[in-house]
Design a protein around this nucleic acid. Structure first.
Length: 475
RNA sequence: CCUCCCUUCGUCUAGCGGUUAGGACAUCGCCUCUUCAGGGCGAAGACACGAGUUCGAAUCUCGUAGGGAGCACCA
């Protein structure tokens, strides 16, 4: 068995200091795919050792985001805050073995050290002042530092970046436990990944620099380090790092904007990963084809236009059941009730290839569920003119007799009316469209009639005729 | 300053020593057409730069430039 098909046991380990943003979501997706593709496991772990910034709401937001994207986990969620005793135990072990030590340095001293190093044009590092301290000062709650090797080089083979090596002389003795007894990130990850027998750590490439320190800790613990795969980050469409300025920071904000999860999954997967020339992949195909080695190294920009294209694709050709769930959610949000108009499945079948998002779909479908206040002036002026009165009246009479209110019959009715009056389809189609919708854009006219429904269609034609009448007598 | 990472059309990417450098989104044009869409056809558009290695480099090596990350009792 080669590296690329060995079952991957990996995890997604967000810190609950915000929502699940697009970059985190993609890292989670890659980890999830890697696990699913190899028949391995995907574990969810919440890194909440930062008491100041971690919140329960964030935990919920992240779980909700994962659920919406249907990135299910096999184990967890585990919380680092539940594992404090374990970290303490490992720290004690390192302390007993002389691989870690208590440090009593004040923040002031550390600050001074940093400033001096900067001033001297050097990289700020802890100087090891407390490494071999004889007598401990009284009354100071020490932090615990890891005794990093002074010599040698840390080398690892990254599954996406290739070989990376850093000299130990570049590293210093990092704090692994704070004064208050909480472990720090670089230490907790190692203990957790070791305990959870993670064999491939998949994370953002901003962690490359942390990896050598962590490998040293694994070694000090006598553990075999896992493999690593550092995936590139996602930039905003302006090339700058993703931030609140870019709008949709939370994946759930994309839901609100009318995107369906399969589209976002497909888009995110193709951002930084590819399989030949293909663009469209179902979730199942992604699982079959994904290999972590095929992820590229370059940071990529988020392109909403391409997401829009994929979203439309999935609206049209994706699983209808899923789309209907999302559509219902948006209808509800827009204050529209499906009982007042066409079935959502009919609506979706007609509108899905005309819009890019569900928000657009719902907005453009309002007239099917609720009456409009006024006819858009431009459209009225152009299409609801006196010449339109006769065709509309004739059509109204014919439509009133239609028994089977279905697209085919409706198409025939409109065509027959046009033929009888010897006018082109457009002469009757546009006035009708404006009468039915209140403006000039809608699906094909027979489908529009179908969705508006018979009773409402007749009513709106009457309304339009009255409008033409009123305008005529006013002038 | 230092350490590490990155660099193919505007964007996402294919490419693993020999290709007219391919595809997709976006853009532009034409066709289809009862509106808007959609669909069809087509156009334009890239190897950051400079040296090597080689019969031959987008592909290998080294520089340069530009971007990013890290240097916390944040993760």
């Amino acid at each position: 068995m080669t590296d690329s098909d060995r079952p991957i046991r990996t995890r997604f380990a967000p810190s609950p200091t915000g929502f699940l943003h697009i970059g985190g979501a993609r890292t989670a997706l890659f980890a999830w795919l890697a696990a699913r593709a190899t028949g391995g496991q995907f574990i969810l772990r919440v890194e909440d050792t930062d008491r100041e910034r971690s919140t329960q709401e964030s935990v919920k937001a992240i779980l909700d985001g994962m659920a919406w994207l249907a990135l299910d986990h096999d184990e967890g969620p585990f919380y680092q805050s539940d594992r404090l005793a374990r970290y303490r135990q490992v720290v004690d072990q390192l302390l007993a073995e002389g691989k870690a030590y208590r440090c009593y340095c004040s923040k002031e001293r550390l600050e001074k050290l940093r400033e001096e190093a900067m001033a001297a044009g050097e990289k700020p590092r802890y100087d090891g002042h407390c490494r071999d301290l004889e007598d401990a000062p009284e009354g100071i709650q020490p932090v615990i530092r890891f005794r990093n090797p002074d010599e040698g080089t840390v080398v690892f083979e990254d599954r996406v970046r290739g070989r990376i090596e850093i000299a130990n002389s570049e590293l210093d003795d990092l704090v692994i436990m704070r004064g208050d007894g909480m472990p720090t990130y670089n230490f907790a990850v190692v203990v957790d990944d070791m305990d959870m027998t993670i064999n491939l750590v998949i994370r953002g490439d901003d962690h490359i620099n942390n990896t050598p320190r962590q490998i040293n800790i694994y070694k000090a613990l006598g553990a075999e380090p896992p493999q690593f795969a550092h995936v590139p980050m996602i930039l905003g469409d302006d090339g700058a790092r993703l931030s609140k300025r870019h709008g949709a920071v939370s994946v759930l904000a994309w839901r609100e904007m009318g995107y369906v999860p399969e589209a976002l999954i497909n888009y995110l997967a193709r951002l930084g990963w590819s399989h030949g020339d293909r663009e469209v992949f179902s979730r199942q195909e992604l699982i079959e084809l994904f290999k972590i080695e095929d992820v590229n190294r370059k940071a990529s920009r988020f392109d909403t236009e391409k997401l829009n294209w994929l979203n439309q694709h999935y609206l049209r050709e994706g699983a209808a059941e899923q789309n209907l769930v999302e559509l219902a959610w948006h209808m509800d949000r827009a204050g529209l009730d499906a009982v007042n108009g066409p079935a959502l499945a009919d609506l979706l079948s007609v509108q899905s290839d005309r819009v890019e998002t569900l928000v657009e779909l719902v907005e453009q479908s309002r007239p099917f569920y609720t009456d409009f206040e006024e006819i858009e002036p431009g459209a009225a002026k152009k299409h609801l003119r006196p010449v339109a009165a006769e065709p509309l009246a004739a059509l109204r009479a014919r439509l009133a007799t239609v028994e089977d209110w279905q697209p085919d019959a409706l198409q025939a009715a409109v065509q027959a009316t046009a033929d009888a009056l010897e006018i082109g389809f457009g002469k009757i189609g546009m006035p009708l469209r404006v009468a039915l919708m209140g403006h000039g854009q809608s699906p094909a006219i027979n489908q529009t009639l179908w969705l508006v429904g018979q009773e409402r269609s007749l009513k709106r034609i009457d309304q339009a005729l009255a409008f033409i009448e009123a305008r005529q007598s006013a002038s």
